[in-house]
């Protein structure tokens, strides 16, 4: 499957990926509405860690044997067997945080949801759960520090 890879050598800590992610995952897909007006607040699923001299974008690896899926107690976190995309269904998530503690990459976060805190993670900007789209973080990166390429293996 195609995966997003983050290259720390070229990450410049601008966080345009975070902005693009948040906007894509908003209702309006408009940056001004997404940042200033929408409720509940849209959440970005990629985040840049580090500082100006060394930084990297953290996002989901979509593991073939995903620990978050193994740990999920409510069946919200699933891996689509055909596409390989790992997604969390917000309607099923109970916010138990098992996925957060099991993810080896720190790619899942718990944030305020419509009714209670739930898990948020990268869905590869698909139109529906489990279907990859064209990742907006990759398009927003000015320095090719995020690349979306076919990965070896599964």
């Amino acid at each position: 499957m195609k995966r997003i890879y983050a290259l720390e050598e070229w990450c410049i800590d601008c966080k345009r990926c975070e902005v693009a992610c948040k906007v894509f995952h908003s209702k309006s897909k408009d940056p001004v509405k997404a940042f200033l007006y929408e409720q509940p607040k849209p959440r970005n699923r990629v985040r840049v860690e580090g500082n100006r001299t060394l930084s990297i974008a953290i996002n989901c690896r979509h593991c073939p044997t995903a620990k978050c899926v193994e740990g999920c107690i409510s069946g919200a976190m699933t891996r689509n067997p055909e596409t390989g995309v790992v997604t969390s269904n917000p309607e099923k998530c109970v916010g138990c945080r098992t996925c957060v503690s099991m993810c080896p990459f720190g790619a899942v976060t718990i944030e305020e949801g419509p009714t209670h805190p739930i898990a948020f993670k990268c869905d590869l900007c698909g139109d529906e759960l489990g279907v990859p789209g064209s990742p907006s973080c990759v398009a927003a990166c000015p320095n090719r520090a995020l690349i979306y390429v076919e990965s070896e293996g599964n």
């Binding site: 601008c14 902005v19 001004v32 997404a34 940042f35 200033l36």
Partner: peptide, 13 residues
Amino acid sequence: KDLCIQCGVCERS
């Protein structure tokens, strides 16, 4: 001001 979303990209750039 109508367009600024205070994302801080300018500050970091």
